[in-house]
Structure formats: structure tokens, C-alpha cells
């Protein structure tokens, strides 16, 4: 049972942390239509996080709620991958992070919609519609920036240098994934193919021979996460035990 809870939390943490990151663009996007689009993606991810936390809370019992899971765990207890907690940087970095993650989430949710736990399967199936849009939108932007101007190409290439090192972790199974026989390694083939196709259109090359950073999935994070959580959890920590 604890592996299932931990895995559900891992999925929820991924969605929450990326949703929180994206939400910082709200009101600050490069053009109104895209401001609305990134906010919408943030909203989808927070919605996914809520469904997953609610399920994890039911499995845990004892008065646990979606909010106690999101607001009262510490950085060492969060098990999101390192990729989603990376800073927004510029529009290129945000977009590339979204593309790398959405393409992973797309194949993962396709796999999970047939998973034996019907609750997780249902959440995956419902979220897949949203993720398909996130993937299409972010792919289009990666291509547009890669094949746009000299400056946009330089910026997306530099984002790729920055973020690629966090992609290896996605396909290395953590303990809870092994326990549940969730074969994340098997997703890498389709994911790589998708990345290569989009990069080819964007005039980008997949970096070779990069040392992959790992640890987020088992609670060893970058220094960024603590600050993100400090802000996210501020109200619940300052005013414990209140209804909002």
C-alpha cells in the first residue's frame, strides 16, 4: 500500500510543482493569448494534482487531505522529478521544460490509463486529453523558437543545455515504481523519438554525453524546491488548522 501512496504522491507532486512554476507567468506573458495559454496549462496541472492528492489522502486515511499533502510536507518528502522544479528562466526555458515534461507525461498517461488501479487509470485517461494539448502547444513553440530568429534559436539552445541533464531521471525507476512494476524505462523509446522529431523541425540537436542529475524522485532536490515550497505553503504554515 505504501508504494501506491508514494507513487500517487510522486505523480501529484510533478503536476503541482510544474503548475506552481507556470502560474508565475500569469499576467506577465509575452502576449495576451500566450499568457492565457500558459495559465490554462497551470490550471490543468493543478487540477491533476488535486485528483491525485485526493486519492493519496483516501489511501492514507487518518484525516489526511489534499491540502495537508500539498501544504504540510517538507522538501525531503516531495518526490517530484528535478525537471519540474527548475526555474522559469525566460520563455524559451519555460517552454522547453513544458515540452520535455509533457512529452513524458503523454506517454506515461497513455500507459497508466490501462493500469490495474482503476482510480489512477481514470485520472490518467481524463488528464491525457489535457496533456495532448500541452504537448501540441509546447511542441509548436519549441519549433517556432528554434526556427524563428537568431536570438530565439540561441535562447532555446541554451535552455536545452540547461535542462537536458534533468531528463535522464524520468526513465530511471524509483523504489515505488519498481514495487508497482511501472516500467518507466520502457517509455524512453517513444519519448526520444518524439523529441528527435520536434527537434529536427526546430533545428536543434539532442545533446550527447551529458551527465544526468537524479534524486528528485526520492526526495533529493535542487535548492530551488525549498524556496518554491516556502511561498506555496506560507498561508497554511502561518495560520495552521484553518478553513479557507
Amino acid at each position: 500500500m505504501s508504494s501506491k501512496i508514494n507513487y500517487t504522491l510522486h505523480l501529484a507532486d510533478n503536476a503541482l510543482i510544474l503548475g506552481q512554476r507556470n502560474s508565475a507567468w500569469c499576467g506577465h506573458g509575452p502576449v495576451l493569448e500566450q499568457d492565457i495559454a500558459i495559465t490554462n496549462i497551470s490550471l490543468d496541472l493543478i487540477g491533476q494534482a488535486r485528483s491525485l492528492y485526493q486519492y493519496a489522502a483516501e489511501l492514507t486515511g487518518g484525516g489526511t487531505t489534499e491540502d495537508s499533502l500539498a501544504y504540510l510536507r517538507t522538501e525531503r518528502e516531495f518526490s517530484n522529478c528535478l525537471l519540474v522544479e527548475q526555474p522559469n528562466g525566460d520563455w524559451a526555458q519555460t517552454l522547453l521544460r513544458q515540452f520535455l515534461f509533457s512529452s513524458y507525461q503523454f506517454y506515461l498517461y497513455q500507459y497508466l490509463q490501462c493500469y490495474s488501479d482503476t482510480r489512477i487509470a481514470a485520472i490518467a485517461e481524463k488528464s491525457l486529453k489535457e496533456v495532448s494539448y500541452h504537448l501540441r502547444w509546447s511542441s509548436e513553440w519549441v519549433i517556432r523558437l528554434g526556427d524563428g530568429t537568431e536570438e530565439s534559436h540561441r535562447r532555446i539552445a541554451s535552455a536545452l543545455d540547461e535542462l537536458w541533464r534533468y531528463t535522464g531521471e524520468l526513465f530511471l525507476p524509483a523504489g515505488y515504481e519498481k514495487d508497482l512494476a511501472i516500467d518507466v524505462a520502457a517509455l524512453e523509446y517513444d519519448w526520444s523519438k518524439k523529441i528527435k522529431n520536434v527537434f529536427a523541425e526546430a533545428n536543434l540537436t539532442v545533446p550527447g554525453n551529458v551527465f544526468m542529475q537524479t534524486g528528485g524522485k526520492s526526495g533529493m532536490h535542487s535548492e530551488y524546491l525549498g524556496h518554491l515550497l516556502t511561498e506555496l505553503q506560507y498561508m497554511q504554515r502561518t495560520f495552521p488548522g484553518c478553513e479557507w
Binding site: L16, Q20, M235
Partner: peptide
């Protein structure tokens, strides 16, 4: 938007995001 990152519950965060997004749509 100043309170999106610090909304006190996930429900309130989602409501606030949707609201601010609606304002962008009105714009």
C-alpha cells in the same frame, strides 16, 4: 496575480488562477 503562488488551499489556487485567466480573456 500577486496571491496565486500563496493561495491558502489548492481549491482557492485553482479558483484564483481561473479568475485571473478570465480577466485576460476579457482583455
Amino acid at each position: 496575480g500577486n496571491w496565486i503562488s500563496r493561495a491558502p488551499s489548492l481549491k482557492r489556487k485553482a479558483i484564483l488562477l481561473a479568475k485571473v485567466q478570465d480577466e485576460g480573456g476579457h482583455g
